[in-house]
Write a protein that binds this DNA or RNA. Sequence first.
DNA 1: CTGAAAGCGCTTACAG
DNA 2: CTGAAAGCGCTTACAG
Lengths: 347, 347
Amino acid sequence: MAVTQKQIAHELGISHQLVSFALNGNGNVAPKTRDEIVATAERLGYRRNELARAMVTGKSSALGFLSFESDQSDHLMRVLSGAIDAANEHQLFIKAMHYRELSDIRGVLERCLEWRVAGLMVMNLTDEAVETLEHEVKQLDMPVAFIENPPSHPADVWVRSDDYHGLQQIIEHLTALGHREIAFFNGNAESRLSEKRETHFRRVMECAGLFVNEAWLVRGSWGLESPLNEEAAQKLLAFQPRPTAVVCSGDPLAMILIREAQNAGLKLPQELSVTGFADFYLAGLSNPALTTVDQSFRVMGRVAVEQLLSCISATPVPNGQRWNQLLPTRLIVRASTAPPLCVPTPL
Amino acid sequence: MAVTQKQIAHELGISHQLVSFALNGNGNVAPKTRDEIVATAERLGYRRNELARAMVTGKSSALGFLSFESDQSDHLMRVLSGAIDAANEHQLFIKAMHYRELSDIRGVLERCLEWRVAGLMVMNLTDEAVETLEHEVKQLDMPVAFIENPPSHPADVWVRSDDYHGLQQIIEHLTALGHREIAFFNGNAESRLSEKRETHFRRVMECAGLFVNEAWLVRGSWGLESPLNEEAAQKLLAFQPRPTAVVCSGDPLAMILIREAQNAGLKLPQELSVTGFADFYLAGLSNPALTTVDQSFRVMGRVAVEQLLSCISATPVPNGQRWNQLLPTRLIVRASTAPPLCVPTPL
DNA sequence: CTGAAAGCGCTTACAG
DNA sequence: CTGAAAGCGCTTACAG
């Protein structure tokens, strides 16, 4: 149906191998012959069959991108975007996949192998999915890049944003405004991400010489279905004395807190400063506009692809330098943070 | 490197063709032989090479998904999700692509052809990109499904939400609350989507027996970079008399209007009802929570895949029934709409 | 510079 | 029920 190299060769009365050489720029082909071949290919509407090409060269041509199928898709698409760009540069394409249940993971891996993907990126997995994946992939010959999700064992590639520095910037910003009484509104109780962020928060607070009030470390839920977040926010707002600022572990949490605070009659940001994390698309549109941290999502996708490729090409890389990629975070100051109403007396 | 059918055959002392038959469940293979083959395949860790398979069967195995690379990615991922599910059911996979400039489109199509994709879904294209694509694809043998984006000529498939009905539900809801003075906050001035939505708005208003105030039809921008939206919102709020409700053509527009209205000192929703369109992930987290319209994005992806496949299988379809798929919209009432403060006297 | 051969891993008629 | 052949569209040594 589609035009083949053989047809071009036949048209020109030459061998089809010559056509292959000319079209790929390999070997020595007389310039005139090459031009003729290229012109004929174009005239006939020839497109190389990458399927055949991939098979014979044995080079895999796809990179898998797997994530948990969720509504919280804002950053996923940005990472995917970065990955697509980087992949394009290497003539690779991205095979988009998702899973809903743990039992789906097996099939995803199976299909990756069948299509001979060069590697797999995973992101936004549940903690259990990370473990399932790590287990399944162990005896398989396929490099995996973890994006954001902390792997439980050293992986081929681990790309993430420097959340510690992100929190550092937030705390610096808040203390510069005069805040001392700072609470932390975190995600799910049993979540590796929550734990990591809480650890960071404690350390950053301590480094800043601030007291960490244990009661002010509340946990809601990364998902938005449950009323957990509203409850946690209300609990946080009921404290006497109330914190003057709340660092939230994610933009959605921050938006919920803003709403609950306003509904409780607080004037924001004067009576309560709130910060987010991630810089989701609509976070800048809340009122007050959310001060948050950009996590370089687009770069994450790009770096994941590049590191994955360096895994494959087996270029020796200084130990630990590949699988631990820390990307910069950047504070975005908007309107949800302000000096506290009554600045506590300096120590 | 990877295990092949030939190796399995060699292991068992049979022909490799028999292995193929057994593994694909084709032809007549003695049950005992089949079991042996399957067992050996498993033991050796065989995975069929889909690349080779696709080449020989000639059946394309991928569906392209192309969108404009933008930050407004919330609904894109949902459509992609639906498409992945539907594609999986047909053993197809999704090749994710994007473009940034019009000149990228050509290359995207080229790569689709080279990989012999069975079809292409496009979404979130700029109007010019739609035209470029339509032009380029004309002489190509590749079915295209337009998702949301109105094609300028009848296309193979066109899947979209029933925005007219969505607006109808909004207006019904507002009038039931007692609103008569309703404005319309639209996207870009020169955008096919804006035009379509404005036409719908006018008609729906007329059907409801409401007066369309031309001055109250304001346009901002689908993008968030420009200050156009803030300006348009302020203009809208400055009208005397002021509308009691504003129908916004998208969730981001609605969130901007909410903010500007609150900053202007209005109490929402009592002094101004605002509605959105799309139901983005964070729209429900604004304060007041946005009343908006669900556009069945996930279903869009699914339907696009299914229609594309029916194009390919060339099953005769009643004229116009394929390329014009209208998906249901559903009003989601949250907190940004309420009865107007002073209900106008009934006619 | 050009041609003829072999092979990538698979499937699909065609004989036995 | 099983085997041997041909072919999918391409690339890559290997001769000339």
